[in-house]
Simulated scan of single mutants.
Amino acid sequence: MNFTVLSDLRSARRLVVKIGSSLLVQRGQPRGEWLAALAAELAGLRASGQQVIVVSSGAIALGAARMGMAKGGRGSLEDAQAAASVGQIELARLWSEALAAHDIVAAQMLVTLGDLEGRRRYLNAAATLERLMAAGAVPVVNENDSVATEEIRFGDNDRLAARVAQAAGADAVLLLSDVDGLYDRDPRSDGATLLPQVDGITPEIFAMASTKSGSGLGSGGMTSKLKAAEIAERAGIALAIVNGTLTAPIARALDGGIGTLFLPQRHDDARKSWLGGRLAPAGVLTVDAGCMAALQTHASLLAAGMTEVQGDFARGDLVAVFGPKGERLAQGLVEYSAGECRAILGLKVEQQAPVLGYVPRGCVIHRDHLVQL
Rank of each mutant, 00 (worst) to 15 (best):
K227R: 15
G58W: 08
G118Q: 14
G283E: 03
Y358D: 10
A207I: 09
Q372Y: 09
F154C: 14
E130I: 03
G200R: 02
G169W: 04
E150N: 03
R266I: 06
V173E: 11
G214W: 08
A92Y: 13
V355I: 08
P324Y: 01
C341W: 10
I258S: 06
D288T: 01
P324M: 00
G218D: 04
D186E: 05
L99M: 00
A43K: 05
V138D: 03
T149K: 09
A299K: 12
A293I: 06
V198N: 10
L373C: 11
A314K: 15
Q310Y: 01
P30F: 09
V173L: 06
I231P: 02
V321N: 06
H369V: 07
G326Y: 04
L45Y: 04
A172L: 14
Q29V: 09
G346A: 09
A229V: 05
M1L: 08
T202G: 07
Y122I: 08
G346P: 09
L370Y: 11
T297C: 02
Q166H: 06
I258D: 07
S219E: 10
A12I: 04
T128N: 11
V111I: 11
E230I: 10
A167L: 00
K227W: 08
G276S: 13
A238M: 06
T149E: 10
L99V: 03
G220C: 13
L301K: 03
L261M: 08
R328E: 12
A170T: 02
L123F: 03
V86C: 04
A83H: 12
D171K: 09
V52L: 03
E143L: 14
A207P: 00
L42N: 03
L301S: 08
G221W: 05
